[in-house]
Computed example of a mutant assay.
Amino acid sequence: MNEKHRFRNPAEQRGADPGRRDLLKLTGTGVAALGAASLIDVSSAKAQAMTENWDKVFPRSGDVDNQKVTFRNRYGITLVGDLYLPKGHATGRLPAIAVAGPFGAVKEQSSGLHAQTLAERGFAALAFDPSYTGESGGEPRNVASPDINTEDFCAAVDYLGLHPAVDRERIGILGICGWGGMALNAAAVDKRVKAVATTTMYDMSRVMARGYNDSVTPEQRARTLEGLSRQRWEDAANGTPAYQPPYNELKGGEAQFLVNYHDYYRTPRGYHPRAVNSGNAWTITTPLSFMNMPLLIYIQEISPRPVLLIHGEKAHSRYFSETAYAAAAEPKELVIVPGANHTDLYDKVDVIPFDRLTAFFNRHLSA
Rank of each mutant, 00 (worst) to 15 (best):
V307L: 15
Y298W: 14
I299V: 15
P338R: 15
R305S: 01
L288C: 08
L295T: 14
A329K: 08
I299H: 07
L309F: 00
M293D: 15
R305K: 02
L308G: 03
F320K: 06
L288N: 04
A315P: 01
I299Y: 06
L296A: 04
P287H: 00
E322R: 03
A326F: 09
V337R: 07
L309A: 00
A328S: 13
L296S: 03
N292S: 15
S289Q: 14
I297P: 01
L308V: 05
A328W: 04
I299F: 04
F290S: 08
I302N: 05
L288E: 13
A329R: 05
L334E: 03
N292R: 14
I299N: 08
A326V: 10
L288G: 07
G312P: 04
T323Q: 13
K332W: 06
A327K: 15
P294R: 03
S317T: 14
E301M: 08
I297D: 07
H311T: 15
R305H: 00
I297S: 05
S303G: 08
A326N: 12
F320D: 09
A328G: 09
I302M: 09
M293K: 14
T323R: 12
V307D: 09
G312W: 02
L296W: 04
A326M: 11
M293Y: 13
P294A: 01
H311V: 14
I336C: 10
G339N: 03
Y298P: 04
E330Q: 13
L309T: 00
Y298E: 14
S317F: 13
E322N: 02
R305D: 01
P331C: 03
H316W: 13
Q300W: 05
L334G: 03
N292I: 13
S289C: 11
K314E: 14
E301W: 10
A324F: 05
A328K: 08
V335H: 08
M293L: 13
P306V: 01
A329N: 07
L334V: 02
S321C: 12
M291Q: 12
S321Q: 11
L334W: 04
E330Y: 09
H311F: 12
G339Q: 01
P306K: 01
K314C: 12
S321I: 10
I297N: 10
L288V: 13
Y319S: 10
P306F: 01
I310E: 01
F320Y: 11
T323A: 13
L334A: 07
G312T: 07
A328Y: 05
V337S: 07
L295I: 11
A315Q: 03
P294Y: 04
S317R: 05
L288P: 08
K332N: 11
F320Q: 09
Y298F: 14
A340G: 07
A328V: 06
A340C: 09
A327Q: 15
P294Q: 03
K332A: 06
V307Q: 11
I299P: 06
G339A: 07
S321L: 07
Y325A: 00
A328E: 10
L309N: 00
F320R: 04
S317C: 12
P338Q: 15
A324K: 10
A329W: 03
F290L: 10
V335G: 10
S321A: 15
V337G: 06
E313W: 06
